[in-house]
Amino acid sequence: MTTKTFSKMRNIIVSLEWHSQFYPKILYTLLEHNQTVIMKSNIGHIQKWILRSGILFCSMFILLFSQLCIAQDGEAIFKQNCAACHKVGGGRMVGPDLIGITEKRPEEWLIKWTKSSQSLIKSGDADAKAIFDEFGGIMMPDQALSDAEIKSILAFISSKSTASTASAETKPADAAPVHSSENATPDVIELGKNLFTGSVAFTSGGPACLSCHNVDYKGVIAGGLLAKDLTTVYSRLGGDAGLLGILGAPPFPAMTQAYKAHPLTEAEITALSAFFYSVDKDTVNQVAGFNNYLLFGGGGGLVGMLILIYVIWFIRKKNSVKKDIYDRQLKSI
């Protein structure tokens, strides 16, 4: 096996980390694929099996171990999953400031909320509904975390809260750095656009936004449909502050995986944020209700065609010639 094959294998395993049920199958497929290479290098049957089992075992071990490591560090998990929208002390961002949250709410409620806020709201919890409404109806993404992981996060928040209250001072430096997209120069917007479309690559090599997202903006070709349309994302996700958090550590599972190894730089985030502001305000390119036009236009066209067909073939044999006979016979019964 070559080094290249190994690194390819690792990449695939990493990118499919959260689909843990696929591991054995993926590995097996990879091994099958490499079998020809092994056979060419004249390794005997037993050696081949040892190699295959070894690779399988090592991969499983690495994966399990890495997960165990994560589970032990509440601060790391917080930064990974929560910091995009939340702070512990220092004010609200997209989501509320979590300072003192462990005293305000029971742990059980917090775990439920973290796993699926929407389910909690649907179950009729008044507090959950109130929070959801307070934060402008922006739902908190469901977090695929275990109870233990959530507990470790809560432990971290709780310890940080105590420390903050003990020092009893607010740190202005901790507040979200305000970069005002309203005042962005055209150059910055242009850079943001280029980063979005992929004309300019991200420094750390992350994929361009366009591959999964679409915006309606002049000079930008139609983007991917895999993820949400970002035309109005600036106003939707809480302006500069929200975008900064989300782009710094994306909370959405697919995005988390895509940018985990390739974080965006501060300058890139600023540029993208400026670009999204510009897109949001440039309503000329936004076609409102386009889908409905298509729907009603198509429906109308269909009805029109049917009417046309009915008119063209109006003179036709509409019934069986025996219809009158059958009708009369049925009537006489």
Binding site: I312, I315, R316, K317, S320, K322
Partner: peptide
């Protein structure tokens, strides 16, 4: 040609 996909005077099985 006009009626190639729908022959309007075709007898049906009931005929």
């Amino acid at each position: 040609l006009k009626n190639i996909f729908h022959n309007p005077h075709l007898p049906v099985l009931d005929d």
